[in-house]
Amino acid sequence: MSWLFENFSDVWALAVTHVALSVPPILLGLIISVPLGWFAHRYRWGRGTLLTIAGLLYTIPSLALIIAMPTILGTQILDPINLIAALTLYAVALLVRTAADAFDQVSPQVLDAATALGYGPWRRFWQVQFPLAAPIIIAGTRVVSSSTVSLVTLGALVGMSGLGYLFTDGTQRSFPFEIGVGIVGTVLIALIFDLIIVLIGKALLPWSRTRRVRAKTNAETLEVTTNA
């Protein structure tokens, strides 16, 4: 434990780097996946192609992908962009399918009603279709967030910073406590990310909670009447 106190500022710096490396792939993955998912939802032929590519992407071993990145992108070997690009690809691979499913489950009747009310296509997407797909997209983002935070540790194997450094360093020095600190730190970051995403979801989508209320009681109409 004293090791942690003595080295806390170093561990903290690694944790900050870890967060800095985790956030861009999650956000980029989200930004890229939503339009792709919409495309897969909208066009049948696009769906097969996109989802197959996404599936294949995910089967590439992560370490191999990270190592191959400098060659593909023409970047320096130690450039953090390599890691961010590789993890973004994984995030997209996971999220495209989720986003497509999310758009699939939005009731076509509701979209039809929105058109009948006088929503133009663009406004309809942002104000109706996307918000209604959002709960599932958020659920998918939680998975991607956890997986990204844990995959960032792999960066240490190719010389990048982050809590993964505690794994490699602890292994070389045969110092399990350091490895334990790395694991606990990574899990903590993942949990905090998850919490943040859940809170954002609750703030943006207050209506999605009412479904659970409804599922709980079939006597809902009765309750509504008495409350009125």
Binding site: A113, A116, L117, G118, Y119, V128, W207
Partner: peptide, 21 residues
């Protein structure tokens, strides 16, 4: 779009927007 905004439309199953009060 402007035409639809000046014509009322009521459909089966109400077609209400589930994310709006």
């Amino acid at each position: 779009v402007t035409l639809r905004r000046r014509i009322g439309y009521v459909m089966q199953n109400s077609g209400l927007l589930p994310h709006r009060t």
